[in-house]
Nucleic acid binder design. Structure first.
Lengths: 194, 194
DNA sequence: GTCTATATAACGATAGAC
DNA sequence: GTCTATCGTTATATAGAC
């Protein structure tokens, strides 16, 4: 068995990320200090820099991991082949994934403006990669004459834009359940491209 | 005629507020420095303190003025007497007023967390005052047997909460015009209380 | 790997000359 | 009313002891 100090250390970085996520979502990136993060983790400031080179990297890693996990989660599934079923599947997946991570969704939306241009471009690339999944589904459907859609690229942007607004409507204790929301959006999206 | 310096000075405070509003909406309150505000106004930092005692007051005045202007704008209108017409009028008024001020709506939602407890309570009181307008309309309608509603206070909170979500849906260049949105919400709200 | 101590810069806010 | 200069504080980030 490894030394206990080493075992704990493996948990330290995820813990820093988790607490930074909470604080950034609660007070905003610029309003949170490294000292506050360290204090809530149970460390002194200097120790944070064993895990992250700077504050900016804590934020950018949160956002990059969020996007990368999203894309990985998509490809980890067994996907249906028919493009119309695949599109329904995508809507369902997207809504469910984002409803399960309200804090990540919030900072991915709010704190983009606090990324350096370099990190912002990284996020943009990942976002494009995710949008390619959807536009790929659409153009495959068009090729098989199941969908009718002139501009699959623009259509996929519009659809993702629409789906993004779910989190502003959805309340866990509200009258509308997540399964209802998903079926509503599935119908809207399918109608939009057939 | 007054001295030109005096004339310009009268415009300085509104200009500071206007530019602070822009910057706060764009980058967030905590990420904007007094020096940045001063620079964009065309002043040195020290000069800002002739108009505001501190940075916090710039933010709180923006939010307080936003709420006070909203309430004043309501009472400045000629109001219909019938409670059902008055309710329609309220929905129309609320949506139009907020669609015209996207930056104010945004910081009124996002920057509440950066208010001191004292200023936060001020905003809460103004919000209650605004909600009293609506609950007053509802209870007057109940008294005249036009509306049916058990808890007018809770109903008014729910309605305002619903109306607040308009700004997340509405896009000026979108397919849905503001007049359509208003009539949709008027119907929903009226149905909800009759 | 974590600590204490510190370098360096930027922040909000103030004082006094003009 | 605006400027320059500066105070005191706090921030990020680093260096070196343990």
């Amino acid at each position: 068995m490894a030394r206990t100090s080493g075992s704990y250390a493996k948990l330290t970085k995820p813990k820093i990320s988790e607490i930074a996520l909470q604080l950034f979502a609660e007070r905003g990136y610029a309003a949170v200090s490294m000292r506050q993060i360290a204090s809530k983790v149970g460390l002194q400031v200097g120790a944070l820099y064993n895990y992250f080179p700077d504050k900016q990297t804590i934020l950018s890693e949160l956002l990059i991991n969020h996007m990368e996990s999203l894309i990985e989660a998509w490809y980890a599934q067994k996907l249906p082949e028919r493009p119309d079923k695949l599109l329904e599947f995508f809507v369902d997946f997207h809504i469910q994934y984002h409803l399960n991570r309200p804090e990540e969704v919030f900072i991915a939306y709010m704190e983009l403006r606090n990324l350096t241009p370099y990190n912002f471009r990284k996020i943009e690339k990942l976002r494009n990669k995710y949008e390619l999944i959807l536009s790929g589904i659409l153009s495959e459907g068009v090729r098989k004459n199941i969908f009718s859609c002139d501009e699959t690229k623009i259509a996929s942007l519009a659809i993702i834009g629409m789906l993004k607004e779910v989190h502003t409507w959805y309340k866990i204790d509200g009258r509308i359940g997540s399964s209802e929301i998903k079926s509503i959006y599935q119908k809207i999206v399918l109608k939009a491209v057939t």
